[in-house]
């Protein structure tokens, strides 16, 4: 049978996770290099409408893995259903977005099939016949090329933003959705999930801010956050933070930028003492201009910065606030 690439799209309660289009784009690019056709599947309960959105993409076949037992996400249910589907369709390569949900079931699925999962990839390359996957390591300080040393199916996940979802090729006419029905015994699912909820009303919507001043560990002490606040005030922007700052309670959780917080794309993102761990960078790399101040010239935040200021933020920010005030006056 011919090699195929299977994209497993993600949906939550009947809504497609847009990051799925990035995975489609990744699959289309690998397809162009390897000649393997792209198939897609989405799993859930009552997901016709979601499947319809993927059907607009240029994929050869599209499957809806549908069962009432998949209506609420569980790792047992999803791993079981996809295991069956993969056994039935024998793809060479299975691609998924590196979301919290995929992280929850994909290692289980791959292990059940005796296969590895190359997780959190940021790209791929070909060397002759070989297909290599590139992943970030050491919090983005290094990248690694990784290959599979086994037969199909290969499993890989791609980091948010690794591919441009808006560049995924669309089909001339929508694909027909093929239903894959699955008999999912109740005993398979051991976890009993409750409905997702939001902790507290989000007091600030950082996605609307033109200017964001974000602080990381480099701010050292809670009282130093006032310095960042003054800078934000001078620029007419909002203050935000990386996860450790919110974990410490120095700023409320709704000020957190990153995979577990808000994703923003302001005109200006000013990063103070932020090292630039992947989990933070995925939440801000769409910003138009990024200025970062960090004492470590190797900090990964500088990889996504337009202006990389190497130095002590406590020396630089006070005169900077004065200069901004002068410029505004």
């Amino acid at each position: 049978m011919a090699n195929t690439i299977l994209v497993v799209a993600e949906q939550h309660e009947g809504k497609l996770n847009r990051v799925s289009f990035e995975t489609v784009k990744a699959a289309q690019d690998i397809s162009a290099a390897k000649g393997w056709p792209v198939h897609a599947a989405v799993a859930g309960g009552g997901i016709e409408q979601v499947a319809g959105e993927i059907a607009a993409m240029d994929v050869e076949r599209l499957h809806a893995i549908d069962s009432p037992a998949l209506a609420a996400y569980t790792p047992d249910g999803f791993a079981f259903a996809l295991n069956r589907f993969i056994a039935d369709t024998s793809p060479q390569l299975v691609l998924m977005p590196h979301t919290y949900q995929v992280r929850d079931f994909a290692p289980k699925l791959a292990t059940a099939l005796g296969r590895p999962l190359i997780s959190d990839c940021i790209g791929f390359k070909t060397e002759g016949d070989r297909l290599l996957f590139t992943r970030s390591m050491f919090q983005g300080k290094f990248a690694a090329d990784v290959s599979f040393a086994c037969g199909a199916p290969w499993f890989a996940t791609f980091q948010n933003g690794a591919f441009r979802g808006d560049q995924a090729r669309r089909a001339a006419s929508p694909r027909a959705v093929e239903l894959f029905s699955i008999d999912l015994p109740e005993s398979v699912i051991r976890n009993r999930p409750e409905a997702p909820f939001k902790e507290a009303r989000q007091a600030v919507d950082l996605t609307q801010a033109d200017v964001i001043v974000a602080v990381g560990r480099g701010i050292k002490e809670q009282k130093n956050i006032d310095l960042a606040r003054d800078l934000a005030a001078a620029l007419g922007g909002e203050i935000a933070a990386s996860r450790p700052i919110c974990d410490s309670g120095w700023l409320p959780m709704d000020r957190q930028i990153g995979s577990s917080g808000q994703t923003v794309a302001p005109k200006l993102y000013f990063a103070l003492g932020i090292s630039g761990a992947i989990q933070h960078v995925v939440g801000m790399k769409g910003s138009r201009t990024v200025i970062a101040i960090n004492k470590d010239s190797e900090a990964p935040i500088f990889e996504v910065a337009d202006l990389a200021v190497v130095g002590n933020l406590f020396d630089i920010v006070p005169p900077l606030i004065e200069e901004i005030k002068k410029a505004r006056a």
Binding site: A144, S147, A149, A308, V310
Partner: peptide
């Protein structure tokens, strides 16, 4: 079954201007 072939410093995707000096 997944083989780390090579570790390297990632290529920059953005043009970054570096700035150092007196505050």
């Amino acid at each position: 079954l997944q083989v780390l072939e090579k570790l390297y410093i990632p290529q920059k995707t953005k043009k970054t201007e570096k700035l150092e000096g007196p505050a």
